[in-house]
Simulated assay, not measured.
Amino acid sequence: MTDCYAVIGNPIEHSKSPEIHRRFAAATGEAMTYRRLWAPHEHFRAVAEAFCCGGGHGLNVTVPFKEEAYAFADRLSERAAAAGAVNTLRFDSDGQRFGDNTDGVGLLRDLQDNLGITIAGRRVLVLGAGGAARGVLPALLAADPAALFLANRTAARAEALAERFGTLHPCPLSAIPERGFELIVNTTAAGLQGENLELPDDVLAPGGTAYDLVYADTETPFIRWARTHGATTTSDGLGMLVEQAAEAFFVWRGVRPPTAPVIAALRRGEA
């Protein structure tokens, strides 16, 4: 029997996850299939349950369903519990739905291991306060930045996140906007719709790093903005996507697939 997996989201047609997991399966010899699964905004639970009851073994969860997946899970990993969001669901043989969050470790591996970006001692700004921000905040805080700030169109959501995560680590965390950040991480989905973010000209320190969790075949508006405002290093979220997928693959299969060849192939546009 071949085990079945999928990525669920809305929108979902852009997702590179099926190609990533096809490459992982080929590299590790794991017998599995993987597909895209679209869900209407109000019907995540129904679609996820139908996939599980139909013999599905696990789901990757993308925008906008990570907080709904958190509520859907029966058991949570420590990192999912800390984040309050789930991006990986595993359907166990005992009927339990196990929820994990691999976003944070995926982001850190891409920033630190693949891009050589140091987080410790840096001033970091996170844009957004949704499920994606929840997923990466514990890992960013654990990397020991000098300070971490949050910004969101709805200020109350950023303030709520600052209150939730402010006691996890001694790093100062605030929703009060400042200027001159050495690393800005955009967790919003604005880039999926090609939307520009309204940011002060001096929010990024000269020579700083800009990282967009969104990935696209063309440069995202946030990355374009960063390049014209003094960023030395910029990256979309393709590397994070592959790294978090590798961690999810391990959660499902107990095997760690190689990531560098997959990132390189996708950067070359191979499908």
Rank of each mutant, 00 (worst) to 15 (best):
D3V: 08
A6G: 11
N10D: 13
I12H: 06
S15C: 12
S15W: 02
K16F: 10
P18T: 02
H21F: 10
R23T: 01
T28C: 14
T33P: 01
T33K: 01
R35N: 08
R36W: 07
W38C: 10
A39D: 02
F44Y: 09
A46R: 15
F51L: 12
C53T: 09
G56I: 09
G56N: 05
L59M: 07
L59H: 07
T62M: 08
V63A: 15
P64D: 08
F65M: 09
Y70F: 15
A71W: 07
A71P: 03
A71R: 15
A73L: 03
D74Q: 12
R75A: 13
S77D: 11
E78S: 13
R79Q: 15
A82T: 14
V86I: 08
N87S: 12
T88F: 05
S93N: 12
S93T: 14
Q96D: 12
D100W: 00
N101W: 02
D103Q: 11
V105C: 11
L107H: 03
L108T: 00
L108F: 05
L111P: 05
Q112D: 08
Q112T: 15
Q112P: 03
D113E: 15
D113L: 12
N114I: 00
N114W: 03
L115S: 12
T118C: 14
I119Q: 02
G121N: 09
R122E: 04
V124K: 10
L127V: 11
A129L: 04
G131T: 00
G131F: 01
A133D: 00
P138E: 13
P138D: 04
L141V: 05
L141D: 00
A142F: 07
A143I: 09
D144L: 12
P145V: 10
P145C: 12
A146L: 14
F149W: 13
A151R: 08
R153M: 06
A158E: 08
E159F: 04
E163V: 12
E163Q: 14
R164D: 10
F165K: 00
F165D: 04
G166V: 07
L168Y: 12
L168I: 04
P170V: 11
C171I: 02
S174P: 07
A175V: 01
A175Y: 07
I176R: 14
P177R: 13
F181V: 07
N186H: 03
N186E: 06
T187P: 04
A190H: 10
G191P: 03
G191F: 01
L192F: 06
N196K: 14
L197N: 03
A205K: 12
G207N: 07
G207D: 04
A210I: 04
A210V: 06
A210E: 02
A210G: 09
Y211H: 13
D212T: 10
V214F: 01
D217A: 14
E219G: 08
R224E: 13
W225D: 00
R227C: 11
T234P: 05
D236K: 00
M240D: 11
V242H: 00
Q244C: 11
A245E: 11
F250W: 10
F250E: 15
T259P: 06
P261N: 07
I263S: 06
R268T: 06
